[in-house]
Design a protein around this nucleic acid. Structure first.
Lengths: 240, 240
DNA sequence: AGAAGCTCACTTGTCGACTAGTCGACAAGT
DNA sequence: ACTTGTCGACTAGTCGACAAGTGAGCTTCT
């Protein structure tokens, strides 16, 4: 008989850990492995042993497996049955797909913010983030966080729940090349100017200009990727 | 021969070929559960017991759990620790997010096809699909497949690998309401006309018209959802 | 009767063991 | 020297059992 069960509650979950099904053990393992992949501590192509990982985390293989499944879903791991689990190589095809998706979504987002206006709190937040970006110009890792924060602030303001989650899924592809590009000279000042151009266009309520500014900004990534693909042929598979 | 000698023998396993992360067993289970959810055999809010499912599929809980994790990732299942796994209710917020993502991507896709032109094979395919759609007008389930095929044909032609996979992930949200709407009168002829308008605009190499036509087409979904939300308050949570 | 407290049958989470499959090393045979 | 076969040390996939938590219904006390 129909069970009148819950599953209907959609209130914002508690801060921090929430928004996620598996146990906190699985979440922790997933996060740590993901971090090690994105920061290239686990290099593309490297084999990850479930046994070894479970040993490292002090658990059995079960939680590790469940974390790996999620990473497969994110495209960061590839599993070959009976052979091993491998850190997926950075794929130019995957990068182009991620860029296409991100551009389509972020353009749609800034157009909407420019059309319906940015909320007061979002305006303050955006300005604060831009100020912060200037402050941490010299620290690439901090800037990376502030960069994400800017894009996320815009996404969060259009009133569509979890839209950032969709972008974040695709973004994992970028994160590795972004980490790769930290040493090489990234013109951070240019990026900040582009952020400012995007925000200005939004505040001017000019969707067309906002779209153009966002496209210009996102095309910056492409340049970096192409340069890095030449520098790191072992990490990046040119499958275009 | 030593009796303990394990020289490679093959005991055929209960499934066919794989080609997917995770074993074919998991893939099969995932597909069957997903189908049952999308066709509302498993109703929103219903509790799914890992034990019961493993019994049904004749496996242990492990493969079932891994299939459920994937379904959680797709937003079709919610797991409450120590309480149960529940078919997620159809959420208007999730629907709006899915619609936003789909519109952003499909508009970007048709704009690109209109700009760079549709390949000869894609043109033929699109026409064939449209012809097929007219043929199966009276059979909603067949039309549903042909509808997907049309959108997919466009997506596949822009030369970005796996772009359809991104759309398909969001599409699972729609699939349930689409199934719900099958009984109620769906103006199939209108949808076909809209498809034709999209294709015409693309062939005319008119990105602006293609974009408008696609937006009109996708807005059709919204009308259906709003109607169904009123008819099935038990299945749809109005969390906008 | 009514309410507090407990029991117990559930749930998911985790574990260690076992299975089948794969690959490299090495030995036997050509 | 080269091929072929076997072994053994891996791998992921699966399994059944147990741990931890939950909640409905019964019991028991007031």
């Amino acid at each position: 008989m129909p069970s009148s069960s819950p599953a209907g509650h959609n209130r914002q979950r508690a801060s921090g850990p929430a928004a996620f099904p598996g146990s906190s053990t699985v979440r922790g393992i997933h996060g740590r492995i993901r971090h090690d992949i994105v920061t290239l501590k686990f290099r593309p192509g490297e084999r990850l042993s479930e046994n070894e990982l479970s040993l490292r985390f002090g658990t059995s293989r079960a939680p590790v497996r469940e974390a790996l499944i999620r990473l497969v879903e994110e495209g960061l791991i590839e599993v070959l049955p009976q052979r091993g689990s491998f850190v997926s190589r950075i794929s130019l095809a995957a990068m182009e797909r991620a860029r296409f998706v991100r551009e389509a979504l972020e353009v749609a987002i800034v157009r909407r913010t420019a059309e319906q206006g940015l909320s007061k709190t979002a305006q303050e937040k955006a300005h604060a983030i831009l100020a912060d970006q200037e402050k941490v110009q010299g620290e690439p890792e901090h800037f990376t966080l502030a960069d994400d924060a800017f894009h996320r602030a815009l996404a969060d303001d259009i009133g569509i729940a979890q839209i950032w989650a969709v972008l974040e899924r695709e973004k994992s592809q970028f994160d590795r090349v972004r980490f790769l590009s930290l040493p090489s000279a990234t013109p951070v000042a240019v990026l900040i100017d582009q952020h400012r151009a995007i925000l200005d266009a939004i505040l001017r309520r000019d969707p067309g200009a906002a779209e153009v500014a966002m496209r210009v900004h996102l095309s910056e990534i492409l340049k970096i990727v192409e340069k890095l693909a030449a520098e790191h042929p072992d990490l990046i598979v040119k499958d275009l």
